[in-house]
Write a protein that binds this DNA or RNA. Structure first.
Length: 573
DNA sequence: GCCGTTTTCGGCCCGACTGTTTTCAGTCG
């Protein structure tokens, strides 16, 4: 069983226990253990074999025993008994907006409803409105919620939400009385996918900005509107919420709006130890004293902590690290001096080598690698071995023209074929300065096969980097089912660089695996995989993913000087 | 069910909004 499968079981247990009416803290404990498993960079099976389950955050004796039972037998008697008591299908009812465990339990006990279809039917027949605590409005809300479930977009890729959010920010900044507007939530934390768009505005009086927000022409539905918080659903199914706080509360409000929820809980727990009750409004003392914070830094400072970058705020140990003064010095966009994966008209790129080089110079880069595809990837017009030699001549010519303005390295993105062999013979690979071995096809091979295939490629002494390791395409195409722990171990041993592909549809390695990679001493490279000049602007998405993985500057080879990169390439032969 | 720089027992973040209520429960983030 994988980390994710275990996490799903514990989340399901939490849902069912909540419907059952269990102690809320027991439920939260299961959720915390599930989150811990989801955020884990190592394979749970390895931790289990080492007998270190209870070292995981949120895993104590009882949950460790359940993990042990699941990994040993593939089953959990506790879960089977629970499902016999509380129908498993009730958990899906919790997905309906505004429907929580109390009402699900009410409908189940009073009307025997266990499925979505039964709930919809009962609502349409007006059977819900007479139950205690219910009324016509609540019933209508449920009907509407079930419909919303059907059209609700799942989490959307960062790259799609980003331009929309930017436009929304610009719009709100123009409202009179608005002092500041900033992204919050998973967008500010730069998660690869986001559930909704969270925005914080500072204004003395919230009414003008709230009105402007809910009255936008693309708003399909207003889900709620109050003095400090409103939320809407846009026509495309995307949701957004806006908080408005006075400028003098901006710091605490921004911490609150940025989250994650778990980070906030962790921070508030720590604040309590320091004698403060932390909310979006202030840091309050029990004696009635209060500290308000205009800046986020002041909130952390008041707790004796350094400011924690938003990308780290996932409760993955950042608060503990901040307490110890051990936060990483994260890589930043300004540190990037090179882009080591891009395509030209030699395969599926839109521009010539010269044009790509000119664009890179505009980005201030010292070095680029032109990494066109190899021939077996027919759909993109990959290069034959003969073309590799011809392209070399062109790269030399362009290099001569541009002098010391930029270094151009000849690379190639070489297919890892379905049997694990590479698309060029060794004598061709030997002539290419920077060899990328990539998966694009047969991604659905079984875990063991695709992992062996990848490791075989890593073992080829000519291979320098693995670009976009899993091949995922957000939001639809899952990546290969790689045993990443085994892949990273092989890469660490071979000195092969792993890429964080900056394209927002990829962000691959993901944040969790990037963090594991640097723990293993692997060097990373953050590249745009540009097929046009505009694509080079996507670099910041990759940098943010690295930051989410606690990656520091020196661990990223394209922050190095060009001479250091060239020296490294030479050392690899 | 987890956890300990006040604790191995007794706590466990904090507040906004809505609807059904005349003061609060449920849901959400």
């Amino acid at each position: 069983m994988t980390n994710q499968q275990l996490a799903d079981i514990f989340r399901k247990i939490a849902d069912l226990l909540e419907i059952k009416g269990e102690n809320i803290y027991k439920i939260l404990a299961y959720r915390k253990a599930a989150d811990s498993l989801s955020n884990l960079s190592q394979d749970i099976n390895d931790i289990w074999k080492e007998g270190k389950l209870t070292e995981l955050d949120g895993v104590g004796k009882a949950i460790a025993e359940k993990i042990d039972e699941l990994l040993t037998t593939g089953h959990l008697v506790f879960f089977d008994k629970l499902v016999a008591e509380v129908p498993e299908s009730l958990a899906e009812l919790l997905q309906v907006p505004d429907l929580g465990p109390k009402k699900v339990a009410l409908f189940w006990k009073e009307l025997g409803i266990t499925r979505l279809s039964e709930l919809e039917k009962a609502a349409n027949e007006g059977k819900l409105r007479n139950l205690p605590g219910m009324g016509e409005k609540s019933e209508a809300k449920i009907t509407e919620g079930i419909k919303a479930l059907g059209r609700r977009t799942d989490r959307i890729p960062l790259g799609r939400a980003w331009p929309f959010a930017e436009e929304l920010l610009d719009y709100l900044r123009k409202v009179s009385g608005v002092k500041e507007v900033e992204l919050g939530g998973s967008l500010r934390r730069m998660r690869a996918t986001v559930g909704d768009i969270d925005i914080l505005a500072a204004a003395k009086d919230s009414s003008a900005v709230m009105d402007a927000f809910v009255k936008r022409t693309d708003v399909a539905r207003v889900l709620g509107k109050g003095e400090t918080k409103s939320s809407v659903e846009f026509r495309q199914g995307l949701r957004a919420q806006l908080w408005v706080h006075p400028p003098e509360h901006w710091g605490t409000a921004l911490v609150y709006a940025t989250g994650s929820k778990d980070h906030n809980v962790r921070l508030r727990e720590y604040a309590l130890k320091k004698g403060f009750s932390l909310s979006e409004h202030s840091l309050a003392r029990a004696d009635g004293g209060e500290i308000t914070c205009e800046r986020e830094e002041q909130v952390y400072q008041a707790l004796g902590l350094p400011w924690i970058p938003p990308e780290l705020r996932e409760d993955r140990g950042e608060v503990q690290a901040a307490i110890k003064g051990e936060l990483p010095k994260l890589v930043g966009l300004k540190d990037i001096k090179a882009d080591l994966q891009m395509h030209s008209t030699w395969s599926d790129g839109k521009l010539s080598i010269r044009q790509m080089a000119d664009a890179a110079i505009l980005h201030g880069y010292q070095l680029i690698a032109i990494t066109d595809h190899s021939h077996s990837l027919g759909v993109v017009g990959g290069m034959s071995p003969e073309e590799v030699l011809e392209q070399r001549k062109e790269i030399d010519e362009v290099s001569k023209e541009l002098g010391d303005k930029i270094h151009i390295v000849q690379g190639a993105e070489v297919e890892i074929k379905s049997d694990g062999s590479l698309d060029y013979p060794d004598d061709v690979l030997a002539k290419i300065d920077f060899v990328l071995a990539a998966l694009h096809t047969s991604l659905r091979q079984p875990r063991q096969k695709v992992t062996e295939r990848m490791i075989h490629a890593i073992h080829n002494p000519h291979v320098d980097m693995i670009p976009h390791p899993t091949g995922r395409l957000l939001p639809d195409r899952e990546g290969a089912d790689l045993d990443m722990e085994a892949v990273l171990a092989a890469a660490a041993k071979a000195g092969v660089v792993m890429e964080i592909n900056a394209h927002p549809a990829r962000l691959d390695l993901n944040d969790v695996h990037a963090r594991r990679a640097i723990e293993l001493g692997i060097k990373l490279s953050i590249n745009t995989d540009a097929h046009s000049a505009e694509d080079m602007d996507l670099m910041h998405f990759g940098v943010s993913t690295a930051r989410r993985g606690w990656v520091e500057k020196d661990q990223v080879i394209n922050t190095w000087s060009s001479s250091k990169v060239l020296k490294w390439l030479k050392s690899r032969g």
